[in-house]
Write a protein that binds this DNA or RNA. Structure first.
Lengths: 226, 226
DNA sequence: GGATGAAATATTGGATACGATCCTGCGACA
DNA sequence: TGTCGCAGGATCGTATCCAATATTTCATCC
């Protein structure tokens, strides 16, 4: 029985792989804000041509991770405190709204999904891998909002989140902040499970606002130190 | 005195020109929802290669105008009534919020800009070109929100708007709706000029909500008709 | 006659090659 | 000494060409 010549992973396009690769570097902090991304360097590093690299960069620009200027290439976008306020204010409007819509049409399956996301997050704290923790944190938020059936708004939130994600990592690292976030996640889930839209919305808003305040003050300290 | 060899327009890249070209076709209704966009056809039409066409399509996907599926090309994205509700709910959260922020830091120059946008819109009604009208309508909204200094949120709004824009055109065409929109714009501007944040926000919200209702009901009729 | 499957065709994805633009460093001139 | 202009190299933007995938066509079988 001849196996298929290539593994299933090959199903995705090179562009997508490159985009993932660069995004991971940025989110992981390997490419800090302001870092110049050379198309040829990435291409050589991955053994591909520059075309998929360019197209990956275009996608990342749409997600707000890089900024492209004509004939000057792509630089990793840097977040000012004002940018962070901008991004989080938008999240603070959208997330509470969507969670109410989600609760309005919540199935038991949805609740189970959120519970699983919560447990995954819990387990990751024990292991302590910050990148994984960041990913699972967002997975929890996504699970909360998914039942709202608002793909466009979810896409917007995705970009808002990924623009601030790598800065959130700084906040999420200290163990104290982690356990605080976990407790908040538990509280949110409890209200969510009971389908209490108002309370869930309130808790979620506070949860996001706390994170925002933490990041903004951190960025302001950084800018003052400059 | 030797003039520069090429006109100033050449300053932008081919990709940008192609993106503009396709976007205009979509917004203008020449490419209806669901229409397959062949890279080679566009390339031949404009006398360029397929590479800038592909990159233009990637940008348009980020703006929500087309959907790209691997090895199947790009199709003009079609809006369901649910999508429209999704998009407009997000706008209804963001625009009133941003206009309040804008008023909080309003300069006389900003007010003059809005007034000019309002007059341009007024003048376009007289001429009656629907594409131009659509563009100037959004220019007015943008001018209102610009002083908020929230570039990230503005970028989000831009994509939300351009996804629904061409359906708005249907609503904006009847003369009655046009004059209604104009009167609303005038009312909004009056409150804005007086720096009345609450009233401006209220009027703007209603203005957007009215447009949303019109479009959604129109889409629903279309879906029922199949 | 309709469904199934394989070859032919069309279309997209990616690699290589070339021209255009921008940045850097050196020298000329005020 | 400081500023300007001008090579030279580095990097990006686009065209051409090849490979991979999807769609269509057409013969075959039930």
């Amino acid at each position: 029985m001849p196996t298929p010549p290539k593994p299933l992973l090959q199903r995705q396009t090179v562009t997508a792989m490159v985009a993932e690769y660069i995004a991971a570097k940025i989110i992981g902090g390997d490419y800090p804000g302001g870092h110049q991304i050379r198309q040829e360097a990435i291409a050589a590093e991955l053994g591909v041509s520059r075309i998929p690299v360019r197209e990956a960069l275009l996608q990342l620009e749409a997600e707000g991770l890089v900024v492209i200027r004509t004939h000057r290439g792509a630089v990793v976008s840097d977040l000012s405190a004002d940018d962070a306020i901008d991004l989080f204010d938008a999240r603070l409007l959208l997330e509470p709204f969507l969670v109410k819509k989600a609760i309005a049409r919540l199935s038991n399956q949805d609740i189970a999904n959120v519970e699983r996301a919560l447990r995954d997050y819990e387990a990751a704290i024990a292991r302590g891998d910050p990148k994984e923790l960041s990913r699972l944190n967002w997975a929890f938020h996504t699970a909360l909002l998914e039942p709202s059936m608002r793909p466009r708004s979810m896409a917007v939130l995705q970009t808002l989140y990924s623009s601030a994600d790598r800065y959130l990592r700084l906040q999420i690292e200290p163990l104290k902040a982690q356990t605080k976030a976990l407790q908040e996640h538990r509280d949110i889930f409890e209200a969510y499970r009971l389908r209490d839209a108002v309370e869930t919305s309130r808790l979620l808003k506070k949860h996001v606002a706390d994170a925002a305040e933490e990041i903004v003050s951190q960025l302001k300290r950084g800018e003052a130190a400059g």
